[in-house]
Amino acid sequence: MTDFEPTIIAFVCNWCTYTAADLAGTSRLSYPQNVRLIRVMCTGMVDPQYVIKAFLEGADGVLVSGCHPGDCHYINGNFKARRRIKLLKEILPQFGFEPERLRLTWIGASDGIRFAEIMRELSAQIRSLGPGGAKLNMVI
């Protein structure tokens, strides 16, 4: 499937990763259009159901990205997010989702360059994994 264009949903926190994306933009850095950003106030508000819904609606990859540990604007939201991602990484692979399709990263507000690099790398990884299960099957 050479013409496969992955869809990647990225939940990014307002204070760090979204700001980094903004910086990447104002610095005129380019990154693949496969990544669709959803700005949330904190990774700690990403209920597992958002991730599940994204996958079931056909996302090939999901990224949750926030402030570095210790830097959370709300003190510890990112630590709570990490447990939820851990939980999902235990559940989703039991239904055939490759664990590599769900990623958690910390990208600080000044890391515009790193943001663009990670988006490129992630996009390439998901592209090589191929389409996700929910794209190939009828999901009820």
Binding site: F79, K80, L87, R103, W106, I118, Q125
Partner: peptide, 30 residues
């Protein structure tokens, strides 16, 4: 995964209600 067993003890907090600063480093990054 959280070294937890439902109903085992009143003392153990539900795993999604707590966290430790250093844990699950293996799921971070790409």
């Amino acid at each position: 995964a959280f070294d937890y067993e439902a109903g085992r003890s009143l003392e153990e907090a539900p795993p999604l209600s707590v966290f430790r600063e250093a844990e699950f480093a293996e799921i971070e990054g790409i």
